[in-house]
Amino acid sequence: MSHPQPTLSANRGAKTKRSWVGRMKKDRWLYLLLLPGLLYFLVFKYLPMWGVLIAFQNYSPFLGFWNSPWVGLGHFQTFFTNPDFFRLLRNTFILAVYDLVFFFPAPIIAALLLNEIRVGIFKRLVQTFIYIPHFISMVIVASMTYVLLTTGGVLQELIVQLTGHRINMLSDPDWFRPLIILQIMWKETGWGTIIFLAALASVDVEQYEAAVVDGASRFQRLLHITLPAITGTIVILLILRLGNFLDNGFEQIFLMTNSLNRTVADVFDTYVYFVGITQGAFSYSTAIGLFKSLVGIVLVYGSNWLAKRFGQEGLY
């Protein structure tokens, strides 16, 4: 959207050397097409961004944005010296790492497995089935988890019969993180395969045929043709994911939190809600949000730089 067909204007520019005003006039319709997109980002993304200034104020809704007193980095100081800080950071970080280690590879593996299926109808059927959970809201997923895992719930009873132990996963702090990761895997793995399957669809079939002639086994074909074909996609998705590294998905954590697993369930996202919205500490929670975004920016730039060092394309 932000690139208004550079080839078009480049061709015209080659014919007659124009000033940039002339070029803009020439391509005015393309720039007009660009305008709604630009306006969207200005109005809904860049304008509200000034709101982060209240992280450096003692914002009060009664004094407003202009009259609230400035406090500099005071809120950041309170946050970093807060005894809760390390617990929150730990919980957020562990969940984020679990997400990256267990959930991130799941769609890749699922796509690779689906790619090996040769019976078209079976492949399409599985695809349709595994896409379904993406379309339901996290609230439904959470309530289904509660229905299946409470005492007397189908899964709870199944586990009792299989293992002989009664584990209450919903209130056991040790089971909170696996449960969150399992939920997100259940919900989003299928949907995540789409982008990889699209990348795989563009692989030239001749490469496989040539590999077969050369005597490559299926595993070798997977390793040397299929996997390289999606490496670029994997790297880009990984960089994008790192930008939201400290986002654990507020809704899901909020819905799965109860008084028994709070020690491991409190993360930055829910803390911002409890402190910021329910207790009205707007500036303080904005400071926490800003801290999260800063970590995200550092990770995106860092991983992009690293990806380029390793010869991958990266984001920009």
Partner: peptide, 23 residues
């Protein structure tokens, strides 16, 4: 490769069942 194929079909069928059966 045949073993892999059989396992692959089983795993994916199981995955599809796990996503659909709760619904």
């Amino acid at each position: 490769e045949k073993t892999f194929d059989v396992l692959n079909y089983l795993v994916l069928a199981l995955f599809a069942a796990v996503t659909v059966l709760p619904f």
